[in-house]
């Protein structure tokens, strides 16, 4: 642990500011709380929001897991885990069930989470309406008035053009029947895991200086039409390593001829299944 820096890098005043903002976020599920995002020793867009939240949450007894694309071994996940091992000296793990705090980019673990776990999402763009309305002052007003017709225009247009809703990730959700919220760029496959999750879900967007929360057991509804209900991705394949047929699969190109194989994106889940099969 590097002693030139405060525990978990941020000074205690900054952590207090973050915790207050987090409490506000939990009190107003799905509402984007502006916060005094700090410059972190990680580029903006690489998880600066997530690591500030994690830094504010971590205590010496916490066990941290970091995943990117579902995997513990992708370079950015390794780098963030190394960062906290260095500045906080906390225990780290690759096992979902062992972790008390899980920082993630783009996935929710396949293993069901518990009440005593917190999932921290890295969020590049917290505003689900941004691509439809670039002005921040206007999108904040739309949220204040719960005026979400615009989002439905987009979904309508998808069905009119493609026959179904053509949003495959960062699929918008309505949290607790009130705030339209970005679940971060997780595949829509993961959206059902947000609904009534026993674990607290926190979202940090460092560059955009916003954080928000989905408290445990909160209703999270993926937007849809009555006659075009929300559906998740399905594969014709099973994981070629562990045989799972209910997990999100990565497609891997294995040779110059373009041969493909499908494997679990959640490396811990896949590894555990294989270990059980071997035993």
């Amino acid at each position: 642990m590097t002693s030139n820096y405060n525990f978990a890098f941020l000074d205690e005043n900054t952590k207090r500011m973050l915790r207050r903002a987090l409490l506000k976020a939990v009190a107003i599920p799905g509402y984007q709380v502006p916060f005094g995002s700090r410059e972190m020793p990680l580029p903006y867009g690489w998880g600066t929001g997530g690591i500030q939240l994690t830094a504010a949450l971590l205590g010496p007894d916490d066990v941290l897991k970091v995943i990117d694309q579902g995997a513990d071994d992708t370079t950015n996940a390794v780098n963030i885990r190394r960062f906290f091992a260095r500045v906080a000296g906390v225990a780290t793990t690759e096992r979902t069930i062992e972790a008390s705090v899980i920082q993630t980019r783009h996935r929710i673990p396949e293993t069901p989470l518990r009440e005593d776990q917190i999932l921290v999402f890295q969020v590049p763009e917290p505003e689900p309406l941004r691509t439809l309305e670039p002005r921040e002052a206007e999108t904040r007003t739309l949220h204040a008035l719960a005026d979400y017709g615009l989002m439905h225009v987009k979904l309508y247009e998808d069905i009119a053009q493609y026959g179904h809703i053509a949003t495959s990730y960062d699929y918008p959700v309505l949290v607790d029947g009130r705030f339209l919220t970005s679940p971060s760029p997780i595949p829509k496959f993961d959206n059902p895991k947000l609904d009534h999750s026993p674990a607290l879900m926190l979202f940090g967007a460092g560059r955009e200086k916003r954080l928000y929360a989905i408290p445990p057991y909160t209703r999270v509804e993926s937007l849809a039409f009555e006659d075009h209900p929300f559906e998740i991705q399905r594969w014709e394949h099973q994981c070629e390593l562990c045989g799972a047929d209910e997990s999100y699969l990565d497609e891997v190109v294995v040779d110059d001829l373009g041969s493909r194989m499908f494997v679990c994106s959640d490396t811990d889940y896949c590894g555990q299944r294989r270990a059980e099969q071997a035993a």
Binding site: D147, Y148, G149, L150, H152, V153, K154, Y156, E157, I159, A160, Q161, A224, F225, E226, D227, H228
Partner: peptide, 26 residues
């Protein structure tokens, strides 16, 4: 008008803002 979405979406927008959620009906 919203020029970047279809005529149908333009007509349906106000209905959706009022809460209508049935695509076929829209």
């Amino acid at each position: 008008l919203r020029l970047n979405v279809s005529a149908g979406a333009n007509v349906a927008e106000r209905l959706m803002a009022l809460g209508m959620r049935n695509y076929g009906q829209l």
